[in-house]
Structures are given as C-alpha cells and as structure tokens.
C-alpha cells in the first residue's frame, strides 16, 4: 500500500492534504495497491478522505512536530510500498526525518506523479526552478514530498475504512509559542499570489496590494529588498533565497524581475507583470504584461475584479 500523511491544522485538513491523498491514489493505481491515510485523531471528518481515494484511514494521536510524527510513521511501515507527504512546513521536516530513520529514498520539491513505479521515477524542481531533474528512488522505501499545487486535487472514491491506530511519538523540542495569522492565505499553498516590489515606494502603499489580494483570495508576497528594508515581513520574501511559490496565478507589481526573484516564482502557471518600465526583465518571464504606474493600474484592477466577481 501507499501510505499518505494527511496534515490538519486546528482539526481541519489543509488543501495540500487532499492533494496528497490524490497523489497517493495515482501512485497506488500504477502500483496496483491500496492507499492508507494517516491522520490526527482530532481531525474532523476523516471519512472525507475517501472521496480522494483513501482506502483506509488510520487515526492517531500525532506528535506536535514533523520529526516527532516521522518517528511514529517509521513504526508503521509493514506492507508499505511508498510514502507521500505534502511539502508544507511540517512535511519538510517529516519527510527527511522519516527517510533517515528507515534509510529510504526521498524526492523533495517533487512536481510530478511517478512515471514508473519499479523503481519509482519522478520529476523535481532543482536549481531554483532553473532546472527539472528526473530522479529514480532506487534504494529503500520510496518517499515523495511534493510541491503544493503542482499535482492538483482529483476526486476518486476509495473504500474509506476508518481504523484507529497507535504509535507513540516523542517530540525532541518543546513548543513554547505558536502564532499563525488567521484568515490569511499561507504563501506556499496559495493558488493566487499578489506580490510587490520596491516600485511601491514605501510600506504605507501596501493597502492596495492587500486589497487586491483580498479580492482574489490571494496570499501576499514581496521581493527581497522590500523585506530587507523592513517594509514587509521576511516570511513574504519570495525568490531563490526566499519562499518558492507555485501558484496558478502570480501578479508581480513594481518588481523588476531579477534572476534571483524569477528563480522562486517562474514555476507559477500564469504570470502577470505590472511595471512602469517597458524594458523590465519581468516582461520576458510573464504571460501578460501592463506597462503602467501601479498606483494607477492596481486600483483599476481591483475595481474590474470586483465587477467581475459580482457578475460571475
């Protein structure tokens, strides 16, 4: 069977978790085996995972951190042929910890489902999206951590039997504080990202960026200098040395399009660039471009999108 780790936050499944189950289903169909989902015993509606292809759903008291959860999963490997984890913050520590504990073969940053299963071969982003690597998980348990949004969610019914599991987990760190902005879309999982750069002139001008993001249900991001000067938090910095994003739509406003910025955003499916400078390099990486002043174009875009939303 293919084991899939299903993450929840405040007892709700994350979008990337449904995608993880869809991924596991596709892999299991190729391998001719079943899908077992591992979820926190507190998560509401575990049976909903059957819709995406889970044949069995093991509920478990999970540890608090990725490494702790990996310790638990490492004791559940009986009959498992492969493991799927979404590349969220938790997944990014869980997957490599598990790989080390069971001496498995790990592909992170994975952007495709397996093209073959003996051994498992997948594609992954390398060199900050400047390259695509085809990798074989040749020795030991194949473990795939995929980029959220890269695969998509697909409905396909699985048997959905609920089992209660047990595996003791220990965290080696103590969690002393957690603060997560509620109601904000998390950047790595976002389907739409509205991002702005130094062309915005100052932090006081981000109101229209947040408004545009709100209309689109988007996450906000920024270029590196913008977070370096402290106009926006570090956690919004995208690019080669920041967060790498993979949304359906990336809107870049007042960002020049330096190679280091593009490295973190060029995997986006559709890119819109808005810039006063017709020679801005971003236009070479974009699908749609507007040469214009952000202070004039963005308010208009907000207005048009509101009208569009009202009509659709």
């Amino acid at each position: 069977m293919i084991l899939v780790f299903v993450e929840s936050w405040n007892n709700q499944f994350k979008k990337a978790s449904f995608e993880a189950v869809s991924y596991a289903r596709k892999w299991a169909d190729m391998a001719g085996c079943s899908v077992k989902a591992v979820v926190s015993s507190g998560a509401s509606n575990p049976e909903s995972l059957a819709q995406y292809g889970a044949d069995s759903i093991a509920t478990l008291d999970l540890a608090a951190t990725g490494p702790g959860m990996a310790g638990q999963l490492s004791t559940m490997m009986d009959g498992v042929q492969g493991v799927v984890v979404a590349g969220t913050a938790v997944g990014k520590t869980l997957a490599p910890t598990l790989a080390a504990l069971i001496d498995g073969a790990l592909s992170t940053n994975t952007t495709s489902t397996p093209s073959s299963v003996g051994p498992v071969v997948v594609e992954r982003g390398a060199f900050s999206s400047k390259g695509i690597e085809t990798i074989a998980l040749s020795e030991g348990m194949p473990i795939v951590s995929f980029v959220p949004n890269a695969i998509g969610i697909e409905e396909k019914a699985g048997a959905g039997a609920i089992e209660s599991g047990s595996a003791s987990g220990t965290d080696k760190v103590a969690v002393s504080e957690v603060s997560v902005a509620s109601g904000k879309v998390a950047l790595p999982e976002a389907e739409v990202v509205v991002s702005a750069g130094r062309g915005l002139k100052g932090p006081e001008n981000w109101g229209m960026i947040e408004e545009l993001a709100e209309v689109l249900g988007a996450a906000t991001a920024c270029s590196k200098p913008v977070s370096d000067i402290g106009w926006r938090p570090h956690s919004e910095h995208v690019g080669q040395t920041g967060i790498q994003v993979n949304p359906n739509l990336y809107i870049a406003i007042g960002i020049s399009g330096a190679i280091q910025h593009l490295a973190g955003v060029s995997a986006s499916k559709t890119i819109v660039a808005i810039n006063t400078d017709p020679e801005a390099p971003f236009f070479k990486a974009a699908d749609y471009g507007i040469v214009g002043d952000a202070f004039d174009v963005v308010p208009r875009l907000i207005e048009e999108l509101r009208a569009f939303k009202a009509a659709n």
Binding site: K172, S176, V178, S179, V180, P188
Partner: peptide
C-alpha cells in the same frame, strides 16, 4: 521558526 502562515518558538 517560520511555519505555514506564521511562527513558532521551540526550546530544546
């Protein structure tokens, strides 16, 4: 540490 959508503080 950065976690999805925010921060966490750990001791170890």
């Amino acid at each position: 540490a950065e976690i999805d959508g925010g921060h966490a503080t750990y001791t170890a």
